[in-house]
Nucleic acid binder design. Structure first.
Length: 548
RNA sequence: GCGUCCAUAGCUCAGCUGGAUAGAGCAGCAGCCUUCUAAGCUGCGGGUCGCAGGUUCGAAUCCUGCUGGGCGCGCCA
């Protein structure tokens, strides 16, 4: 990054004009031409505390800097007090050299320092296939996990599920009914609010075909449980297969039921009770959330004796913190937003540090094709599954489209655009840049020209070359920021800019057939770009094709 | 009604934790291939940053209110 060349000099200059020692120097890359390569607003920020004219402060900073700062060509004061710095080409060559030395790992960071992070995402219960809308949680969660891993965190990818609830019973009853229909009892009643999806028939067919004897040996109650287990198995197999096709693999599948069998639920209630936060009312057990700053108290154990989801959620999060994770990341859809404060309050009440929990809320997805909203509904059984979406547009497009917008905004997924295998599709724009580089490297190899990492970079002076180097130099910072802020879409934005910078360079700067020194330096620049693009796409979980 | 997220070009969206003349893609119009992939590049048009106040040298960005929309507000998860 350019700012590293001037940061220490600037700090010294600030000290010499008696600026406060905690002054935060903010650097920006100016948008407009003629404003240098790098800009800082520090003089304007200091105007208040130092009670001075910002331009005058800027002038004294520039005077204190002197004109012998290495790599700096010129410094100008502009507008209300911007300090604009123009670097000489050697700064760009130096940055590129640093990136060359990072080899295939260009852009990798160690800001995580080995700290442990648990990222929990997908977490759909095994009551059916993942539907298309689940794709956003999958892609956002896995990309965040990738980002953190890329930045030196020790990441655990976790999937939390519940195979004991009401919905699972409904699943078992639904399958049971379909099996009985097949075994000569067509009048057997289908449960109210049962699952109507096609997959229920598929599961029933499977049971009849492979386990009919075992099924018929069961009592009525056992049959429902049998079907529930068969359904869970079938659904999980399918979910894992779907995730696998998106290259998503969890390290831990955490069964909510283990919280019961291991006594964590009762232990949690007792711990909360000891703190005076639990009371009985109307036959139920309540958590005094108002004591913890929340709006209202909530039931944690129903009068039926069953806990509500809130209790295991608290026990689950407290348990993960107790395992010693430095950070927990939850990926939730907007429909779960209200549960978060309760869980965090409960976790805090149990003596854990809730500030270690970071929750990424993503808004809902609308699928659009030809300007019309495409409906999907699990309830009606007319489900639009994630598998179908992947079949339609491909795994790369699915992953990219779900992370290319900020998680907090409503996402419009344009199926028409996604299906387009051409220039309109933003994924191909990135992949094409990579394939173009791969192609040129192949062509060079055919001509007996290898990438020479020790090539002299001084011949790189074209505006397009310097722009490309500047963009490349930002790669690591972009990834670090995306990891820190848990904002994967900024990587997608960056890669678009990087691809554009490469296409510009490619268009204006002939590589093969140039004079040997220029050819060598440009080939090396192309190779570094390829590495950065491949790494960036890998973080997004998108492939980097050699040929398109 | 309460909570929460959102509102930026015709459409979909960025906007780097307050900075300079608010950007990109798509759509529209006009150009560029006998040479490394035209899935590319170049140019043009297009804006009351939802509205109204406030803080500040300076606001799309921070605060308040309002309007419009998404999602929640259960002894469902």
């Amino acid at each position: 990054m350019l700012h590293t060349y001037v940061e220490s000099h600037l700090q010294r200059a600030l000290a010499s004009i008696n600026a406060p020692s905690d002054t935060n120097v903010v650097f920006e890359i100016p948008r407009q031409q003629g404003q240098g390569h790098l800009s800082t607003t520090v003089a304007m920020a200091l105007a208040k505390s130092m009670r001075g004219n910002p331009r005058a402060i800027a002038q004294s900073i520039v005077d204190a800097l002197g004109n012998d700062v290495p790599f700096v060509q010129s410094i100008e004061i502009a507008g209300p007090g911007f300090i604009n710095i123009t670097f000489d080409a050697a700064a760009f060559h130096d940055m590129l050299r640093t990136m060359i030395e990072q080899g295939a790992d260009v852009g990798r960071s160690d800001i995580g320092g080995g700290r442990t992070v648990n990222v929990e995402y997908v977490s759909a219960n095994p009551t059916g296939p993942l539907h298309a809308g689940h794709g956003r949680n999958c892609a956002v969660g896995d990309t965040i996990a990738n980002l953190l891993a890329w930045c030196g965190f020790a990441v655990t990818r976790e999937y939390y599920f519940n195979n004991a609830g009401n919905q699972m019973n409904k699943l078992g009853e639904s399958i049971d009914a379909r099996v009985r229909h097949r075994l000569g009892d067509p009048e057997f009643p289908f449960p109210e609010d049962g699952y109507h999806g096609e997959y229920i028939h598929a599961i029933a067919d499977d049971i009849v075909a492979t386990r009919q004897d075992a099924y018929e040996a069961c009592s009525d109650d056992e049959r429902r449980a049998f079907c529930r287990r068969a359904g869970e198995q079938w659904c999980f197999d399918l979910i894992k297969k779907t995730l696998d096709s998106l290259n998503i693999h969890h390290d831990v599948f955490f069964n909510e039921d283990s919280l019961y069998t291991e006594g964590k639920i009762t232990a949690t209630i007792e711990a909360l009770r000891q703190r005076g936060l639990v009371y009985e009312k109307d036959g139920a057990t309540w958590l005094a959330l108002t004591e913890l700053g929340q709006q209202q108290d909530k039931v944690i154990v129903k009068s039926s004796g069953e806990p509500t989801y809130r209790l295991p959620d608290i026990a689950y999060h407290a348990g993960k913190l107790a395992q010693g994770y430095d950070m927990l990341v939850d990926i939730f859809g907007a429909d779960h937003i209200a549960t978060i404060p309760d869980v965090l309050a409960g976790v805090t009440a149990l003596g854990q540090d809730a500030s270690k929990v970071r929750v990424v809320i993503h808004q809902m997805v609308t699928f659009v094709e030809n300007g019309e909203v495409v409906k999907f509904s699990k309830r009606s059984g007319k489900s639009f599954t994630l598998d179908e979406l992947i079949d339609e547009v491909g795994a790369d497009v699915v992953r990219f489209f779900f992370v290319m917008r900020a998680a907090g905004t409503h996402l419009e997924f344009d199926l028409g655009l996604a299906k387009e295998e051409g220039d309109k599709n933003p994924v191909f724009y990135l992949q094409y840049a990579h394939a173009r580089i791969a192609s040129i490297l192949r062509k060079a190899a055919e001509q007996g020209i290898a990438v020479d990492e020790s090539a002299d970079l001084h011949v790189l002076a074209h505006e397009r070359e310097l722009e490309l180097i500047t963009l490349l130099s930002r790669f690591r910072q972009v990834v670090e920021r995306a990891a820190d802020q848990l904002e994967p879409h900024t990587v997608a934005e960056y890669l678009r800019d990087l691809a554009a910078a490469y296409h510009n360079f490619y268009h204006d700067c002939r590589i093969l057939g140039s004079e040997p020194a220029v050819q060598g330096a440009r080939l090396l620049l192309a190779e570094v770009t390829r590495r950065a693009m491949r790494n960036g796409l890998a973080v997004l979980g998108v492939g980097a094709p050699e040929v398109m």
